[in-house]
Simulated assay, not measured.
Amino acid sequence: MSPTTKNAGGDRAGGLRGELTPRRITALAAAVIALVFVFENTKEVEIRLLIPEVTMPLWLALLAVGVVGVLCGVLLVRRRG
């Protein structure tokens, strides 16, 4: 084996290193828009969680739902090795 042989993954040893792909740009833009939307909605709201009714800032409820959505997406799209 010569010292210049690449591993099976190519030269993508840095994870996020590399060029900005359209997929990365779209994901970044969507995240920025979602965060702007969340932090523009700062009023206190009443939310019913099955039985209890909770008063909390709307931005916190939106952020929590966004995090749950991202976690569901990660679990559903996880690649098989």
Rank of each mutant, 00 (worst) to 15 (best):
M1L: 05
M1Y: 08
P3A: 07
P3E: 01
T4C: 03
T5K: 03
K6G: 04
K6N: 03
A8D: 04
A8Q: 08
G9V: 04
G9Y: 03
G10N: 11
D11Q: 09
D11R: 11
D11P: 02
R12I: 02
A13T: 03
A13P: 00
L16V: 13
L16P: 00
G18C: 08
G18Q: 12
G18W: 06
E19P: 13
E19G: 13
L20S: 08
T21N: 06
P22T: 02
P22F: 01
P22Q: 08
R23Y: 09
R23I: 12
R24S: 05
I25Q: 09
I25V: 04
T26V: 02
A27T: 13
A27V: 10
L28N: 06
A30N: 06
A30Q: 03
A31W: 02
A31G: 11
I33N: 01
I33H: 09
A34K: 09
A34D: 11
L35R: 08
L35Y: 07
L35M: 11
V36K: 12
V36Y: 12
F37D: 03
F37G: 00
V38I: 13
V38L: 14
E40Y: 10
N41S: 07
N41K: 05
N41P: 05
T42K: 07
T42L: 04
E44T: 05
E44F: 07
E44P: 02
V45H: 01
V45F: 07
E46P: 01
E46L: 04
I47L: 14
I47A: 10
I47Y: 05
R48D: 07
R48G: 08
R48L: 12
L49N: 06
L49K: 13
L50C: 09
L50S: 11
I51A: 14
P52D: 10
P52W: 11
E53N: 11
V54C: 09
T55H: 05
M56N: 01
P57C: 07
L58Q: 09
L58D: 02
W59H: 14
W59Q: 10
W59K: 10
W59L: 07
W59A: 14
L60V: 13
L62W: 04
A64V: 13
G66D: 00
V68Y: 15
G69V: 05
G69N: 15
V70T: 15
C72T: 15
G73F: 09
L75N: 10
L75F: 13
L75G: 08
L76P: 04
V77K: 12
R78V: 10
R79Q: 11
G81Q: 12
